[in-house]
Design a protein around this nucleic acid. Structure first.
Lengths: 200, 200
DNA sequence: GATTAAGTCAACCCATTGGTTGATAACGGA
DNA sequence: TCCGTTATCAACCAATGGGTTGACTTAATC
């Protein structure tokens, strides 16, 4: 360790780095909460995974619950971006399927079952509903469906490998958590919405 | 309490009734596990809800986990029946939507997220896949879809008010746990599969 | 009626878990 | 270089929660 440490302290070789520590804790929390859900997740496990003393969870986030809330709100920004870009419906569904494989997605699924926190970003949902309405107006989707409920159906369908994880495994015999499965499933969904749009 | 208790002991006015006690505990467990999930559910709450001493959970089921497993397997019989009857697809979906409002359904959803227990009955799933394949052969559903994945999609879609509970609430502004919502949603799904089948 | 078995409960036990404390080390500015 | 602040940690703490113990009560059997 003969490296001069006084200069350029932002490099990765630092003894103390609050930013990095915070980030590591959040990342570890996403993994743990995502894997086991809030109640079953252990703060000591989160700290261990982050490679950090568990007291730092209190120090930075005010405890387990604070950390969870931070996590829940932290990706609202990300979702908002995703909403803005106009893509073919296939692509939207595919990207949604993809996010269900992330830790974020898993936490989202857990939080959807519990009735504690506001899970999804309102902006995102509104934008998506509007987009569906547009597609209906353009004849891309049947006009007699309620766009809100349709969005709900499509999101649930896309999230199936996550929310119905065990069932998916039992039906297909494969692990629904892999990228291959997600791609195959997304392809199937694309096929399905094509049928929906009338063009067989 | 001047009622003669010695005669006809199977009536509801008994001091001790193991059957009833067992049933009450199971019922209470379904409610608690369904509401909060396994990890967050408290055995004392289950006992309290059942109006019974919490030790009886150990006595009858060997503890929290035993109770949970009992619960998980207890409705496999019920599901099997549901599978056998040949109904129009609308009806199948509707009954599936309906079961997502029950405590059973909620527990099922939780157990699907966690990777602990075998959640759904294998028989049931196989039967449903076969049924879908038949419908494809009959031209009722597009033949180019994989029947297994299609079942997954349909189940996920039907379970949306449960698995995407918070999101559903945010999208529609209503409580997705009510019977009215379930009916409205089932109607929407019926409409959707009709579009799928080609007959616009 | 006596004896045994089954059912139920109040009280206690102890491992787990989230959180706190106080000490210590690193960093940055005077 | 010294000092105050910030970051980090090991050890400790209180509460929670699932489980057990032992006593007591009801029901069935002889």
């Amino acid at each position: 360790m003969a490296v001069d440490q006084r200069r350029s302290p932002s490099a990765s070789e630092r003894k103390r780095d609050p930013e990095r520590t915070r980030a590591r804790i959040i990342e570890a929390a996403a993994a743990e909460f995502g894997a086991k859900g809030y109640a079953a997740a252990r703060t000591s496990d989160i700290a261990a995974r982050a490679g950090v003393n568990k007291q730092l969870i209190s120090y930075y986030f005010g405890g387990k619950e604070g950390l969870y809330k931070e996590l829940a709100t932290s990706w609202h920004g990300t979702a908002a971006e995703m909403a803005s870009q106009e893509q073919p419906l296939d692509a939207v569904l595919a990207s949604f399927v993809a996010t269900t494989l992330t830790d974020h997605g898993r936490v989202w699924a857990w939080s959807n079952l519990a009735d504690d926190s506001p899970s999804t970003d309102q902006e995102f949902l509104r934008a998506q509903v509007d987009q569906l309405r547009d597609r209906q107006a353009a004849g891309e989707l049947p006009a007699d469906l309620d766009p809100g409920l349709l969005l709900l159906t499509l999101m649930a369908a896309a999230a199936a490998p996550l929310t119905l994880r065990q069932t998916a495994r039992q039906i297909t015999g494969e692990d629904p958590g892999t990228r291959e499965f997600a791609e195959k499933y997304a392809a199937q969904l694309a096929l399905l919405v094509r049928h929906l749009s009338g063009r067989t």
